[in-house]
Amino acid sequence: MASITLPNPGVLAASRAVQATTEQPWVRWSLIAIAVAFLGVFLFLPLAIVFSSALERGVSVYVGALREPDAMAAIKLTLIAAGISVPLNMIFGITAAWAIGKFDFLGKSLLITLIDLPFSVSPVVSGLIYVLIFGLQGLLGPWLAAHDLKIIFAVPGIVLATMFVTFPFVARELIPLVEAQGTEEEEAALTLGASGWQTFWRVTLPNVKWGLLYGVILCNARAMGEFGAVSVVSGHIRGRTNTMPLHIEILYNEYQFAPAFAVASLLALLALATLLAKTVVEWKARQQSTELQRMSGEAL
């Protein structure tokens, strides 16, 4: 039968398609090598040097650097700044997500852009704007001085600057999630007699809890690690207005490398924990979204 000996165009196209959607092994491995080298030099090396330099002078120097009073004070101040700014920004984020995600109103996209604003402002400028308001030369400076209130070069200024730079994190995580959730489940809860609060606590919040957690983790990492903005408002008073990053800077500039990296290693550990948490949360969220897809896929 002649027809069998003819090349089947379908088979031909298919075999070429397989070839044409993968690369030659040498191309593949070169690309992998380039990517791994790039990430290795730019990500692994910095991480490795932080820990190796921190422990260069031995464990006793490492522990000593962390237990030193100025270091302890810096750690404490960092925790205070994050402890105030993260919860406040979390409340803001949740509120903003409710207003923006569940309702339609005029100027909604403008509001979203404005919320993103702090991301695009240089940290140095973020600190500066508070100096221009609360500093001695600032708009409210004379009034504050007259009432013996100190914001700049003091803890309140550090908290304000931290709040500014971490302001969008939670809101930005939550808004798209809450929006994608729609309003049907909330409507169902209301028809079942739930109050607005009950609906929010029992239906809305549990549905976005992973996104919320992720936003809070990112917000916290940035709050504890912020350098530029805090540097401008802090005044660098040792043991009083130094956060961990500022303490690192001082130690480093005094050529106390091992202690500087010891404090830095704490922040690096925090960064690694943040990445780990992010991976877990993303995995959880993906699980949830495949469930969601499965549900709506069947529904349609």
Binding site: E184, E185, E187, A188, A189, L190, T191, G193, A194, S195, R202, V203, P206, N207, Q288, E291, L292, M295, S296, A299
Partner: peptide, 20 residues
């Protein structure tokens, strides 16, 4: 009256079950 007060049973087109 609000939806909470009307005591109606409402079944949504896509069910709107609480997925958590």
């Amino acid at each position: 009256r609000s939806a909470q007060e009307r005591r109606v049973g409402f079944v949504f087109q896509h069910y709107a079950l609480f997925r958590h």
